[in-house]
Amino acid sequence: MVDSPLVNFKGRHLLGIDDLSADEIIGLVNTANRFVEVSEREIKKLPTLRGKTVVNLFFEPSTRTRTSFEIAGKRLSADVINISAQSSSVVKGETFKDTVLNLASMRPDALVIRHPSPGTPLYASKFAGCPVINGGDGAHAHPTQALLDMMTIMERRKSLKNLNVAIIGDVLHSRVARSNISAFKRFDANITVCGPKTLMPAHMDNFGVRVTHDIYEAVEGADVIMMLRIQTERMAQGLFPSLREYSSRFCLDSKVMKKAKPDAIVTHPGPINRGIEISSEVADGKYSVILDQVTHGVAMRMAVLYLLCGGAD
């Protein structure tokens, strides 16, 4: 077999989409597609990462991402250990660096880190001694989410080239939005971001995206509508007056969907707030690929673990 440049994932970190080329994203999606079938089997297990140890180090609450990484590791026969901040020595005052150094001394083969502070996985990668995978760091990046989104879109659209994409909601606090913008940009998408002015970062045009505050305008002609979760705790910070006002202007319902292309798809990273950013009719309807995203999440994380810890030396 001739080694293509694509296979050189071994020992690398996955900190953000910015580290990946378009070809590498496609390579990851192709690899993940081969793992989909495993989850349909009666015996959902491959021996590929037998003897490898994956540590999930989560400093923020998470069900989907943590479970998804855990299932992904276990379906590849890796030993997966979950550590959450609440149950770790962090509560005894241990620094983040000491926590990582101690875990690194136990020789894991991959470290998945979620942390509220942007850049934490990058910092950890300097001394972890094994591949570090960013499981979400503050408002910075969530690369495996963007990769599973690309996988889900490719399944429906075959190609990622030149799509009209609307990203709607709390763009300000969204690492999902940032990682997806970075990914879509590699495939020449026309991206529109939409949300209240208070939840829109300044200078978004520097990303090469269009900004609007009108959901109808954002969805007009869209191939992909990417909804973001509205965190109700933002209301306490005075960023929007009430959930009712938010949903009256930014909820994706069937009336708004009429503006999209007839074969448009709706994604959401979850957990969804029904009736706030997305109506149940749309969330459960024909445009929605929200549960496909969750299924693909396991396959994509299998691909990431396989390529980072199982590849060539």
């Binding site: 293509s4 071994k10 192709n30 081969r34 079938e37 030396d313």
Partner: peptide, 23 residues
């Protein structure tokens, strides 16, 4: 049948990103 994930020489040959899945 895709046997890639069952091979014992993965570390030497490196993964093939473009093969088809088991069907």
């Amino acid at each position: 049948l895709d046997v890639t994930f069952y091979r014992d020489d993965l570390a030497r040959k490196g993964p093939n990103l473009n093969a088809s899945p088991t069907n």
